[in-house]
Simulated assay, not measured.
Amino acid sequence: MNTIQKQQISVLIITFNEERFIKNLIDDIDFADEIIIVDSFSTDRTVEIIESFANVKLIQHKFTDYTSQRNFALEQAKNNWILFIDADERITPALKSEIDAVVNSDNSASAYLVYRTFMFKNRKLHFSGWQTDKIFRLFKKNDCFYSKDRMVHEKLIVNGNTAILKSKLIHYSYSNYEDYKLKMYNYGIFKANEKLKKRNHKSVFLLFLHPTYTFLYQFIIRFGFLDGAKGITICYLNAYSVYARYKEMNRIISSRI
């Protein structure tokens, strides 16, 4: 009689000051065969909370950029199947069941995209550009890696077939205005350095044109206006990230002259 061996899954998380989310996330991923958290020296209670879980391996590693941190985490995993999840994401029972079924299927793809439901202060955001948000979260380590060309909004390179899971992740990205604004600012700074690293120099004119376009596109074309005040806030802050990018690019270029 042939016995099919159940596939092992390594769950990877990168953290910095995630005390609000990390406990609930670790509780969510109790199905994992290995849990590795790579922390970039948090200054809040994140490490204390992580260390309260005996089944979690904690590694402290200096943060350079998001891609480097993810690839470092990948190197630590002992299993081929990887579930890479952010601290502000949650896995539903339906998604757990689907992940289990997929990794133990004979017809598995090399990587799976997962749709995300964006939560705005614990309430679902329906539009504002987030209605089609999906990201690679489940994949085979031997077939995938994160492209070093990006410092933020990481791109997974997949050597093999891809597919999409039916169940969604819950994404608690927006808890308050100031935290989300800081996140968008930091993304903008990383994106500026990424663009300059590729010698992608943009004109000063785009400092105002591109953020305006981003806001109008997400608010009108992507139906942000249907989200009311929430839509205005999200569309503005996403445009603010683009503004921060060009402002930083212009600052760096000016300092070199």
Rank of each mutant, 00 (worst) to 15 (best):
M1W: 05
N2A: 08
I4D: 05
V11L: 04
I13H: 02
I14L: 02
T15H: 00
T15R: 00
E19D: 15
D28V: 10
D28N: 15
D30K: 04
D33N: 14
D39P: 02
S42F: 05
D44F: 06
E48V: 07
N55W: 00
T64H: 13
R70H: 09
N71K: 13
F72T: 02
L83Y: 11
I91F: 14
P93T: 09
K96G: 08
N104K: 05
D106G: 05
N107D: 12
S108I: 08
L113F: 15
F120D: 00
N122T: 13
L125K: 03
H126Y: 12
W130D: 06
T132N: 15
D133Y: 15
L138Q: 01
D143P: 01
S147Y: 03
V152K: 07
H153G: 14
V158L: 04
G160I: 02
A163T: 10
A163V: 10
L165K: 10
I170W: 00
N176R: 04
D179K: 11
D179S: 13
L182F: 09
Y185I: 08
N186S: 07
I189M: 09
F190E: 10
A192Q: 03
E194D: 08
L196D: 07
K197A: 07
K202D: 07
L207D: 10
L209C: 11
H210F: 10
T214N: 15
T214F: 12
L226T: 07
L226K: 14
D227M: 11
K230V: 02
G231K: 06
Y243E: 06
K247I: 07
